[in-house]
Design a protein around this nucleic acid. Structure first.
Lengths: 186, 186
DNA sequence: CGTCCGTTTGAAGAGTATCAATCCGTGTGG
DNA sequence: CCACACGGATTGATACTCTTCAAACGGACG
């Protein structure tokens, strides 16, 4: 889809499905974003005129391109530009939240926070916040949360034993939102 | 100066000195930014209309305020808005870089990367990239890099033994830039 | 001189990564 | 229809980095 370093051609709005953005180094990569419907892809590409990471689908997805010239075009209404500015700033803020979620927190807090965040995003889409499907693999979740996939497995299993959630394949049920939240906000 | 949650009043451009932005939780705080001359404070506050973190001086600093109304004012030239958009996007990208620097990397890589980044920033200001003063404490550096202050101490001491840099109080000399870079890019 | 705060140093412990093996579901070819 | 293989998921044992706790040290300042 999009490769890290590709020249910036425009923003993409996600209509359906799920995508991931990853930042590549020598031999490994770090997943920096999961994009759900309503999210904007490419905000971090405007300034340096090239995409900051590789974007790939996690499941079949629908996108809409907003070409670069529409952003750069001086004749576009200023309202749009300001909308974009707010969008950028909010994305930056959300990034801080994620950064905090991950840094300095033990793994179980990170995993709990991940499921709470996902639940919240599905609720915003009008889907059930208690039962949903996450198309990404455990390894991708672990990478996103910066931990070994084995660690993610063990914690998910522990959460199941504690009755906090159930996981069968890619289907997840949040059984105890309060319990998970209390762990995430530890 | 600025407290987390304060209503957004405008952006600040740093003219001289150094400041820090920290994100506060229950009992602890995470330093998310060190602002050097040329940096912009408050980009992450535009969208949600309130400052995302507490900003405080690390040493005496000079700032210039760009009031909110200048940003919101419809009559402002569009060129300025687009400049702001690029600024936001670049800041977001730089944030990714920092996020990567910290996540998943052993402590010595983080510390080496920190000094390389600082050296680079001083060079951009026209100061010596080999010898400079960092007004922040070791504890603040450690917090910024998400590690215990003792760990930061030990690594700085090890770097000194290896002849990579020298540190006397807040004065630092980069003795072996290539050596540090090779550790940082590990 | 004594106190305070930041720095440094040491020893112990917790948490997580790593490695290795096994399990499981899916798809493939005979 | 049934082995078989493959990738992901799971589980266990081990090693290691880093944090934590505790204490000593140093300079700044009243």
């Amino acid at each position: 889809m999009i490769n890290q370093g590709d020249p910036f051609e425009g923003l993409y709005i996600v209509h359906c499905g799920m995508l991931k953005q990853s930042y590549q180094r020598r031999y490994d990569e770090l997943i920096t974003h999961f994009f759900l419907p309503g999210d904007v892809i490419g905000l971090d590409a405007i300034g340096y005129r090239c995409y900051a990471g590789t974007v790939a689908t996690v499941e079949t997805s629908g996108l809409r391109l907003i070409p670069f010239r529409c952003i750069e075009d001086l004749s576009s209404p200023e309202a749009r530009l300001k909308e974009l500015i707010c969008c950028l700033s909010e994305a930056m803020h959300d990034e801080h939240t994620r950064l905090w979620q991950i840094l300095n927190q033990p793994s179980d807090v990170k995993v709990a926070g991940f499921f709470i965040t996902m639940s919240y995003k599905f609720r915003n889409q009008g889907c059930s916040p208690h039962s949903f499907r996450l198309p990404m693999s455990r390894q991708e979740i672990a990478n996103y949360l910066c931990m070994a996939s084995e660690t993610a497995c063990r914690i998910i299993k522990r959460f199941q034993k504690q009755g906090l959630l159930s996981a069968r394949g890619h289907e997840y049920c949040i059984l105890d939102p309060e319990g998970l939240t209390s762990i995430a906000e530890q």
